[in-house]
Each structure stands twice: as C-alpha cells, then as structure tokens.
Amino acid sequence: MEAKRLTPATGPRPTSNWIVLWGSLTLLLLLVGLYLALLWAPEEATMGIYQRIFYYHVPAAITAFVAFFINLVASVVYLLRRSRIADAWAVASAEVGVVFLTINLITGPIWAKPIWGIWWTWDARLTLDLVLWVMYVSYLLLRQLTPRGELQPRLAAALACFFFVDVPINYMAIRWWHTQHPQPVIFGGPGSGLAPPMYVALAICWMAFMALGYVLLRLRIEQEMDRHALDDAQRALLLEDVGG
C-alpha cells in the first residue's frame, strides 16, 4: 500500500519564512506597545499609574473574543463540511482565546485591587468573562478526554454551538441578576473619555496582541495538521502490518 506523503520531518520547514517575518513584526509591535503603554502615554488623572494596566487588559479581552468567534465559525464549518482544517482552526482558536482571556482575567483583579479596593466583584462584565473562560476550558477538556479520530472534532463542534446559543442567555441572566445586587463599587474606568495619546497606545497594544494571536493561531493550526499527518502515517503502517 502506498503510504501517504509525509511532511519532511527534518530539514527546513515551509513554515520558517512566515514565522520569522510575523514573529519579528509581532515582537516589534509588542515592544513598541510596551513603551507606549508604560512610558509614553500620559498619566491618567484619577487612577494614576494603575490605569496603564488597561493597555493590556482591554486588548487581551478583544483578542480573546475574536478568537472565540473564529472558533464558532470553524465549528459550524466543520459540522457542515467535516474538514480537518476547519477543526484545526477550531481547536487553535479555542486555545489561543483561553490564553488571552486568562491574561484579561488576571490583569483585571490586579487593577481592581488598588482602584476599587477589592479583587473581584460579580459585575456583569467580569462575570460574563469568567463564564466564557469556564466554557472554553471545558471545551478544551472535552477535546483532551475524547480519543483522537473522527469523533473528537464532531463532539467539540457540537459543544461550540451550545456555547454560541448560551452566551446571549448568559448575558441576559447575568445582567438581570447583577442589577438585583448592590453594586459594591463606583465604576470610573475608561470610556468616560480617553485622551488621544491613550487611544494610540491602546490601538498599538491591540494590534500587537492581534498579531501575536495570529502567530499563535497559525502555529497551533500547523501543529494540528502535523498531528493528523502523524495519525495517518501510523495508521498506514498498521494497515501494512495487517495486510502482511
């Protein structure tokens, strides 16, 4: 039996070109963003230095939402087409989304402690972030606990559809629930008007995070496809054995 063509395991990989280009661009953007956020942007009047955390906090959240949206689209495409590449996109975007949302959830309390005086509050936005995080971690766990093969992407895609339907219901439930509870803090965050340089710093940081997200996503997709190649090769060998 003719074994499937394998990616050359040694020697230069076809990925090397783009990773150098995108990797250096991302690193540059990240460093520029860091400089703008920490030194260049003016100090905020009421929150002082702590407001600078927002230059990482907000872009991380937006990047995570973009990743989860990609996950949904890829899952639906998988259910319709059953294509491996769609599933690779789905698993990659879920992982990258969880990474960025973790950053968002860690930087949030670090900011809240000096400003609000508390680490955490069941504010609507925080709660929804946490719920999303919990959901996609359970998505990754499902993938981990399901044997590789045709079943795993199928179940994962169905779960992604459940999440999509769940998010708006969650939004309504959490908002209503939240309004019934006294709000422990006065929210004086951004949105109450940022100075133009702050927008610039925020935009650069967001671009840096999106570029980084793209690099991570693409690396993870290629890894997933490599794993498929490995699965195929192993199966082919096994069939040869059986065929004698």
Binding site: V131, L141, L142, L159, F162, I169, N170
Partner: peptide, 9 residues
C-alpha cells in the same frame, strides 16, 4: 464539566 458551564444562566 460540560453541563455546569452551559447551564449557568
């Protein structure tokens, strides 16, 4: 692990 996150609302 699957049910609880989705059932939150």
């Amino acid at each position: 692990l699957l049910l609880l996150p989705v059932a939150i609302p």
